[in-house]
């Protein structure tokens, strides 16, 4: 086809675009993905046995706040990474804020009098935590990829890492309802590793799965 014919065709096929289309595409997919992650948590892992008591514990709220903050910045990253020409440094830098906050909290807990550092850092599930976070994150990662393919990511590895960071943080949020750990050093180390693991998976797969 000649280029001028193509232009005529595209021009004749011009529907108005509603504002917020990108965010709607992303949110829709991500809600589905989150439902998948919750299902994995409830069926494969199970809600924590002391859930009723934990709802009012500091540890639970700290985990939720930490992972929610990372997921919120992650969502922002994903939204930008799907738009050509958008600058990524600022949301990238914002990721440091929650990490810094939990690092400070972890340092406080470890330097408190009578602190048992190995227990604070290793808890009782350090061997599986990061892997289970990534497992819980997988449905959300798949949904985020699906949505990103409908946007226009131009740096595929970076887009995959962004999707992985978001999905990892969302997965860790969901995983919080299974895991009984509540110490800041544990969460700051193993949850963060689980999120980074998911980001690595996303970065690796991005090149192959995000092409459009």
């Amino acid at each position: 086809m000649r280029t001028d014919e193509l232009i005529a065709q595209l021009t004749g096929n011009l529907d108005p675009i509603r504002k917020g289309t990108v965010v709607r595409t992303l949110s829709g997919a991500i809600l589905l993905g989150l439902a998948g992650s919750i299902l994995v948590m409830l069926t494969a892992l199970g809600l924590r046995h002391d859930f009723a008591a934990a709802v009012i514990s500091f540890g639970m709220w700290m985990k939720l706040a930490y992972t929610f903050a990372l997921a919120a910045v992650g969502f922002w990253l994903v939204e930008r990474v799907g738009r050509p020409g958008a600058e990524m440094t600022k949301p990238g830098l914002f990721l440091a804020l929650p990490v810094l906050a939990i690092a400070v909290l972890a340092a406080l807990q470890m330097s408190a009098p009578g602190a048992n550092i190995p227990v604070l850092v290793l808890g009782h599930s350090s061997r599986v935590c990061a892997f289970l976070v990534a497992l819980t994150a997988l449905p959300t990662l798949a949904a985020t990829f699906w949505a990103l393919r409908r946007l226009a990511p131009t740096q595929l590895t970076l887009a995959g890492v962004g999707a992985g960071l978001f999905a990892g943080a969302a997965g860790a949020f969901v995983y919080s309802f299974h895991c009984t750990e509540g110490a800041a050093p544990f969460v700051g180390l193993w949850y963060t590793l689980g999120i980074l693991l998911t980001a690595g998976i996303g970065g690796f797969l991005g090149r192959f799965l995000l092409r459009w």
Partner: peptide
């Protein structure tokens, strides 16, 4: 992909 253009950018 025209919906991915953000008018602020």
């Amino acid at each position: 992909r025209r919906a991915t253009y953000e008018p602020a950018l």
